[in-house]
Computed example of a mutant assay.
Amino acid sequence: MLSLHVVDEVAPLKAVVLGTAESCGPVPKPEEAYDPKSLEHILAGTYPVESDMIAEMDAFARVFEKYDVQVFRPSVIEDCNQIFSRDIAFVIEDKLFHSNILPDREREFEAIQHVLDIVDSKKVIRPPEEVHIEGGDVMPWNDFIFVGTYTGDDYPDFITARTNKEAVEFLKAEFPHKTVKAFELRKSNTNAKENALHLDCCFQPLGKGKAILHKNGFLVDEEYQWLVNFFGQENIFEISADEMYQMFSNVFSISPEIVVSEKNFTRLNNWLRDQGFTVEEIPYAEIAKQEGLLRCSTLPLIREY
C-alpha cells in the first residue's frame, strides 16, 4: 500500500503520477479549446505534435529516475489528452481528492485506478458536485493551504475559472487545523497574457523560503501583497506578463534544493542557481503551448523527509 503524504510543495519527492502524452488525439477544433493559449496555437497551426510531447515527458521521467522517485503513469486512453495529471486529483496530508473537473475529463481520473487500488480507499475523497476544484489551484504549504479561485458573478462565463468559492469552504471544513488562504485570479477566455488559468500559473513557492510571483495574475492587490509580505520581497522572483505566458512559475520542486525547469527559462534558471538551487533543465516548450507545464504534469503522492 502507498501511504500518501504531502504537506508542502518542496519536501523530497518519493512517489508521483506523471501524465502521459501517448495517444493524445488529433489537434482540437477551435471550439474544443479549454484555454486561450491552446486556442492561439490551434488557430496558428503551431499546436504541438504528439511525438515532441512524448519526448519532453520522457525527459521529465528521466529526472525522476535520477533522484529515485517512484513514478506512476496513467493507463493510456485512446485519443485523450492525459498530460496534466495535476488537474484530475491532488493530495493534502494523507488524503487524495478527486478534482471536480470539466465533465469530459472524468475518464482521465479512471486512468489512474491502478494507483488508487494501492491507496486506502477511505483516504480517496470526492467533493460534492457544487465544489469545482482543480489541483493547479491548490497548494499545501505547511499550516496553510493556498487556493486560487474566482468568485465573480460571471464565473459561469469563464471556461478558465476552475475553482469556485464552494471549493474554498470545502477545504476549510476538511482541514479545520489549517489556514485556507484564497486568492482571486485574473481570468480571460481570449487573452492568454491576461489569464491566470490556475494559481500555479502566477505563483510558486520554492525551497529556501523563495517564491515566484506574477503581480497581474492576482485581481486583488492586497492578496498579492500578502504573499510578498509572507515570503519577503527579497525572496521573490517577479515574472513579467510574457514570462507568465511562457509558464515561468510552473516549475517543479523535487526537494527544497532541486528544481526542474524549462531549459529556455534563462533568467529564472540563472536566478535559481544564484540562490543555491540545483536546476534540472529539460525541454518542455511544446507542452507549454497548452497552458500547462511541469507542475501541471505531476500529481505528487508522497513527499517526506
Score class of each variant (00 low, 15 high):
residue 271 W to G: 02
residue 8 D to A: 04
residue 150 Y to C: 10
residue 28 P to E: 05
residue 202 C to F: 13
residue 169 E to Y: 13
residue 58 D to M: 13
residue 13 L to T: 05
residue 215 K to E: 15
residue 44 A to R: 15
residue 91 V to E: 00
residue 50 E to M: 06
residue 31 E to Y: 15
residue 133 I to C: 08
residue 233 Q to W: 02
residue 83 I to G: 01
residue 173 A to S: 15
residue 4 L to R: 01
residue 115 V to D: 00
residue 69 V to F: 04
residue 49 V to K: 10
residue 197 L to E: 05
residue 193 K to I: 08
residue 93 E to F: 11
residue 197 L to N: 04
residue 220 V to A: 03
residue 112 I to F: 13
residue 8 D to G: 02
residue 112 I to H: 03
residue 299 L to W: 08
residue 207 G to K: 11
residue 143 D to S: 06
residue 116 L to E: 01
residue 200 D to E: 14
residue 103 P to A: 05
residue 113 Q to W: 13
residue 138 V to I: 15
residue 23 S to G: 07
residue 265 F to N: 11
residue 29 K to G: 12
residue 266 T to C: 07
residue 82 Q to I: 05
residue 25 G to I: 00
residue 107 R to I: 03
residue 108 E to C: 06
residue 136 G to A: 07
residue 5 H to V: 02
residue 304 E to V: 02
residue 188 S to V: 09
residue 242 D to E: 15
residue 301 L to A: 08
residue 255 S to Q: 13
residue 116 L to F: 09
residue 186 R to F: 06
residue 93 E to S: 12
residue 43 L to V: 04
residue 8 D to T: 02
residue 216 N to T: 14
residue 146 F to D: 00
residue 2 L to C: 04
residue 265 F to A: 12
residue 4 L to G: 01
residue 186 R to T: 14
residue 88 I to K: 00
residue 15 A to E: 07
residue 227 L to T: 04
residue 230 F to S: 02
residue 251 V to G: 06
residue 214 H to A: 10
residue 154 D to M: 08
residue 158 F to Q: 01
residue 13 L to C: 03
residue 33 A to C: 15
residue 240 S to K: 10
residue 240 S to W: 09
residue 58 D to G: 12
residue 291 E to W: 08
residue 29 K to L: 15
residue 91 V to A: 07
residue 244 M to W: 11
residue 135 G to A: 01
residue 99 S to A: 13
residue 112 I to K: 03
residue 119 V to L: 08
residue 140 P to V: 01
residue 17 V to Q: 00
residue 188 S to G: 07
residue 67 Y to H: 08
residue 132 H to K: 14
residue 34 Y to V: 06
residue 259 V to K: 02
residue 8 D to M: 04
residue 205 P to E: 08
residue 216 N to G: 14
residue 282 I to E: 04
residue 32 E to W: 13
residue 36 P to T: 07
residue 138 V to N: 03
residue 180 V to W: 13
residue 210 K to N: 10
residue 114 H to V: 10
residue 206 L to H: 11
residue 16 V to Y: 00
residue 3 S to K: 15
residue 172 K to I: 02
residue 59 A to G: 15
residue 116 L to M: 14
residue 58 D to P: 05
residue 164 N to V: 05
residue 158 F to W: 09
residue 74 P to Y: 01
residue 81 N to Y: 00
residue 150 Y to Q: 04
residue 191 N to A: 06
residue 145 I to Q: 01
residue 117 D to M: 10
residue 141 W to G: 01
residue 155 Y to P: 00
residue 226 W to S: 05
residue 10 V to W: 12
residue 265 F to E: 02
residue 125 I to A: 12
residue 240 S to M: 09
residue 174 E to M: 15
residue 212 I to G: 13
residue 271 W to K: 07
residue 13 L to D: 00
residue 294 L to P: 03
residue 298 T to P: 04
residue 89 A to S: 14
residue 69 V to S: 03
residue 215 K to N: 09
residue 288 A to K: 05
residue 155 Y to M: 05
residue 49 V to C: 08
